[in-house]
């Protein structure tokens, strides 16, 4: 069953055509990596999946809900689709554990003791149990991102969206975050859509790679075939450029 489905989706910012005739299907449990040069529409695409950006034409089905239908309650989708941002977006006025516990308390009405137990388990899982009481301003970028991932997981989502989760991090912090993401990908029930420039991560974890440029999906193939023999010239060029780094 497909978790996310784009059918002839068009997205404009004023006159700018940000997504052009996007067709894409992601099955439940799949890990899909979205790559492409900057300005290609990767972030725009991933942000449409939980309604942070509206689409103007076409159909976008997420967990069975039609996002283009004005009657759709966006909060119902967001309950099941978590998002991890480039700049973390942790709640600056809440401690690490409060960041994790807030949404389950308010949205899922989870019992307080249970909420705390789950939050501690997640802190454990991302290796930051000792930072539970710290404020975001006291954490490093990599720690903030791991808390942000724990915050998303606390909602027990069916799908997780990652929008360049390591792009704002110092190089030595990236590994810890990618390790956590690898763990999540290993859970076969979680659907993951990841925008990233980490090619080694894509190679190791992704079931499929989507290559975008100029608002279009140019290539959609299995990870092996994408990295071994990309069919699109733009994808070949892109890979040779990132490989030189």
């Amino acid at each position: 069953m497909s978790m996310i489905e784009f059918k002839d989706v068009e997205k404009y910012y004023g006159d700018f055509h940000a997504l052009k005739n996007v067709n894409l299907e992601i099955d439940a449990g799949e890990t899909v990596v979205l790559i492409g040069p900057s300005g290609s529409g990767k972030s725009t695409l991933i942000r449409t999946v939980n309604g942070l950006e509206e689409i103007q034409q076409g159909q976008l089905l997420v967990d069975g809900f039609d996002l283009h239908d004005p009657k759709t309650d966006m909060n119902k989708i967001r309950k099941n689709v978590g998002m991890v941002f480039q700049h973390f977006n942790l709640y600056n006025n809440k401690s690490a554990i409060e960041n994790i516990m807030l949404a389950p308390r308010l949205v899922l009405k989870r019992d307080e003791a249970e909420n705390k137990r789950i939050a501690m388990e997640l802190l454990e899982k991302v290796g930051l149990a000792d930072k539970a009481a710290n404020m975001p301003s006291e954490l490093s970028g990599g720690q903030k991102q791991r808390i942000a991932i724990a915050r998303s997981l606390a909602m027990k989502p069916k799908a997780l969206l990652f929008d360049e989760p390591t792009s704002a991090l110092d190089p030595e912090m990236i590994g810890d975050v990618l390790d956590v993401m690898r763990d999540i990908a290993a859970d076969s029930s979680m659907t993951m859509l990841v925008v990233t420039h980490e090619m080694s991560f894509a190679k190791a974890v992704a079931d499929r790679v989507i290559f975008m440029a100029d608002g279009q999906i140019l290539e959609d193939s299995s990870t092996d075939s994408f990295f071994k023999n990309p069919s699109e010239p733009r994808a070949q060029k892109f890979l040779s450029q990132v490989a030189n780094h």
């Binding site: 309950k79 941002f85 977006n89 709640y91 807030l102 949404a103 308010l106 949205v107």
Partner: peptide
């Protein structure tokens, strides 16, 4: 604006995001 966005993506309603964050 990332504070509101983070809260909405986390499942909070607009009013909840305003009030708590």
């Amino acid at each position: 604006s990332g504070q509101m966005e983070g809260a909405r993506a986390n499942g909070l309603k607009f009013g909840q995001a305003m009030r708590y964050i």
